[in-house]
């Protein structure tokens, strides 16, 4: 028993200096790891960027430290830190983090160092310049000699031959002795029909509407929702910047779509489906009247209970509606 205790005491004694050491070195120095960042001031979208990081601890380079590079990104109403590159520091305590610049609004960046005492961050900002389209779809195989012109040529040959066969008939009524006036009609109708059908076919081929617009993003595109007629519709999304300053209007915009208002009243609120337009002159007079309408569900509109939309949320929707232009 006693020997046992003695051993324990020894063990505790032996660990004490270790613990002390750790406390001395780690805890006061926790924020003291020095992270030096060398990043370009200005970056163009599509450019490959190298950020050099040097991690030192009390003047000593940190070898084999895990570092990561992240930026604040936003999409679909959400934003957060997005890690784009990771690396391990070398003997000099430095590491280079490489990534391809894709987002335009990723100006707020940080380097994360996962030291023995948890994560340490150093924030910095870069300026991003717009660049070219980066993601391109592709489909099928592009075989140089193949094209619609072959189809046109083949069809042209076929139609010309059919037309010639019918054309031959035109001379038959002419050579008959008592000229048959009635008889001329049939071959002419036939030739006319053949020309008409052939022309129609070529028109159909040559006026084919664009159907694979994904292969050429950014092109002019002739198909859009009618609900959006009247609006020049930029993609607003919510960028990281927007999200930083949340407001009733922005929340209201999300709620408006989430709760299904947009399903009936359209995204712009103006073209009216169930209850018609709810912007401009037709906009609700007060928050209370909007709450009443939503709870009651007038004129065939489904009623929304407290469980679906709280009063606070309705107020946000109200604020959003106020910002929408009439007849936009």
């Amino acid at each position: 028993m006693s020997t046992c205790n003695a051993k324990k005491a020894l063990a505790v004694l032996a660990t004490l200096p270790l613990v002390l050491l750790l406390t001395v070195f780690v805890s006061p120095a926790a924020g003291a790891s020095n992270i030096e960042v060398q990043a370009p001031d200005q970056v163009t979208v599509g450019e490959s960027v190298t950020v050099t990081v040097t991690v030192t601890n009390a003047g000593e380079p940190v070898v084999g430290g895990e570092v990561a590079l992240a930026f604040v990104g936003g999409v679909g109403g959400e934003s957060g830190w997005v890690v784009v590159a990771t690396a391990t520091t070398d003997a000099t305590g430095s590491a280079s983090l490489e990534y391809l610049q894709r987002a335009l609004d990723a100006t707020r960046m940080r380097v994360e160092y996962f030291g023995p005492d948890g994560q340490e961050n150093t924030e910095f900002n870069i300026v991003i310049v717009d660049g070219p389209q980066l993601h391109q779809s592709d489909a099928g195989a592009d075989i140089p000699i193949l094209g619609v012109w072959w189809l046109v040529v083949v069809l042209a040959v076929v139609w010309v031959l059919i037309g010639l066969a019918a054309w031959r008939l035109l001379s038959i009524p002419r050579s008959t002795r008592p000229a048959a006036r009635l008889a001329r009609f049939v071959p002419r109708l036939m030739v006319g029909f053949i020309i008409f059908t052939a022309v129609g076919m070529f028109v159909v081929i040559l006026t084919k509407p664009e159907s694979h617009a994904n292969l050429d993003p950014g092109q002019e595109f002739d198909r859009t929702p009618r609900a959006l007629v009247g609006q020049v519709y930029e993609y607003p999304g919510l960028t990281a910047g927007d999200l930083a300053q949340t407001s009733n209007e922005l929340d209201g915009r999300q709620l408006y779509v989430q709760a299904g208002c947009a399903s009936c009243h359209s995204v712009g609120g103006d073209v009216g489906a169930v209850g018609g337009s709810i912007v401009g002159e037709d906009a609700p007079r007060s928050v209370q009247s909007l709450i009443d309408e939503i709870r009651e569900g007038p004129k065939g509109m489904p009623a929304f209970s407290e469980g679906t939309l709280t009063e606070a949320e309705i107020e946000k929707i109200f604020d959003y509606l106020q910002t929408l232009p009439a007849n936009s």
């Binding site: 717009d130 660049g131 617009a213 950014g218 859009t224 007629v229 009247g230 993609y235 999304g237 960028t239």
Partner: peptide
């Protein structure tokens, strides 16, 4: 024509969203 009004959704940069 009106229906043919809209270009693709573009990001803040003018690039097309994918």
């Amino acid at each position: 024509k009106a229906k043919a009004s809209d270009g693709p959704a573009t990001g803040p940069s003018g690039r097309t969203r994918q």
